[in-house]
Structures are given as C-alpha cells and as structure tokens.
C-alpha cells in the first residue's frame, strides 16, 4: 500500500456497510479529501461516523420496514431451529440461549452458520432495495439479544463458577461474532462491490493526476 492509498480495511467497511443511497459518491469524496492530505486516522473516523449515521438515517426513514426485517429474521430463526430440533434432537437451540451452549461440534457449527446465513438471506430478499440497513439492523438485534447472556457468562467465569459444559467466554464471543457474520454473508453484505465501470464511475485507465 502506498502512503497515498486510503486505509484498505476502512474503505472495505464503508463499501460494504455504508447504507447511504449516495454511498459511491461518499467514498469518492472521502478518497478525494484523503488524497489532499488527510490522515488515515481522519479517514477511519469519517468511515465510522458515515456508517453509523447512514444506518440510523435509513432505519429512521423506514421504521416499519426495519421492524418487519427484525421480526422476519427472528421468526425464521425460530422456525428453522425448531425444524432442526425435530430431525436432530440434540441441537437444542443453543444459539438462542448462549448460556447453555454445549455443542461445538464441527458439522453442527456449520449447520448453525448456514441457519443464520439463511435468515440473513431471507431478510435481504424481502427488504430490497433497502436490504443493507435491514440486514444490519437484524444482525445488531442479534448482538443485543446475545449481550446479556454473554455478560452473565463472563461474570460466572470471572468468579470461577462457569456452569459445567458451558462454553468458555472466548468461545461464546466467537460464536456470536461468527453467527453475526453468517447473517451478513447470507444478506449479501460481503459480496464484491459493483465494478467501477458502472453508471457513476470509470475504469482507472487514465493517467494519474
């Protein structure tokens, strides 16, 4: 990376999580200001503010849609987990009750990720063209839902009273993060951005300025 390149991770975050309808123009403006001498720290600050503001603006402008998106995600999650329980009885809904997590088997973990990805996909499919903020708010609701059990588990571990068979806190946190990432993958938020030859951009074959 040259010193004139914006931070790649920050740019990736903005490209995939920025919810503004004008996101390509926002990225262009940030790149232009960065190229006129702004720091990487400034760029990161702008990215964080832009992602948060654009998410809340979209949610505020589409409150009903956001409510439906969160409800859809949770209902599908409940239905699919019940369905899995029917066929595989030992898959008790540990993703809904993280304090009772006891089953970190490899294939079951994959099945869990697939379940979460499916919920993200359904939320995205039913909420176009606003799928990005709707998938993000659903994923946020999952993190909020998981926070109290994680807190209880971390307190128990700190006191040395972790229930027998329960996940260690690092594994519980990893599980929540990976399940959240599965929602985002299923919702298409990690898909590659459109090529630069779209309507509002050009291929960078011209001479550098």
């Amino acid at each position: 990376m040259s010193s004139m390149d914006p931070p790649k991770v920050a740019r990736w975050v903005l490209t995939h999580f920025g919810c503004s309808p004008n996101n390509p123009a926002v990225i262009g403006d940030l790149d232009e200001r960065f190229n006129s001498g702004r720091s990487a720290r400034w760029y990161w600050q702008q990215v964080v503010v832009t992602v948060v503001v654009s998410l809340f603006t979209e949610i505020w402008n589409h409150k009903f849609r956001a409510t439906i998106a969160v409800l859809t995600g949770w209902i599908v999650l409940q239905v699919v987990s019940s369905w899995l329980d029917y066929f595989v009885p030992f898959t008790s809904p540990f993703w809904l009750l993280p304090a009772t997590w006891t089953c970190p088997d490899g294939w079951m973990t994959l099945l869990t990720w697939a379940t979460f990805a499916t919920t993200g996909w359904i939320v995205a499919k039913t909420q176009r063209p606003h799928h990005r903020p709707m998938v993000l708010i659903y994923a946020t609701s999952f993190i909020v839902r998981s926070a109290p059990p994680l807190w209880v588990l971390s307190l128990a571990e700190w006191r040395g009273e972790r229930p027998t068979g329960a996940y260690p806190i690092w594994l519980a946190v990893f599980t929540v993060v990976s399940e959240c990432a599965s929602i985002l993958v299923g919702g298409g938020l990690f898909r590659r951005a459109k090529p630069l030859t779209s309507d509002n951009s050009v291929e960078l074959k011209s001479k550098p300025v």
Partner: peptide
Amino acid sequence: PTPERGGRAK
C-alpha cells in the same frame, strides 16, 4: 468521475 476519487463520480 475522476481518478483521485477512485474512479467514482461527483
């Protein structure tokens, strides 16, 4: 669109 904007339009 301009190169210094990563090819994105104003």
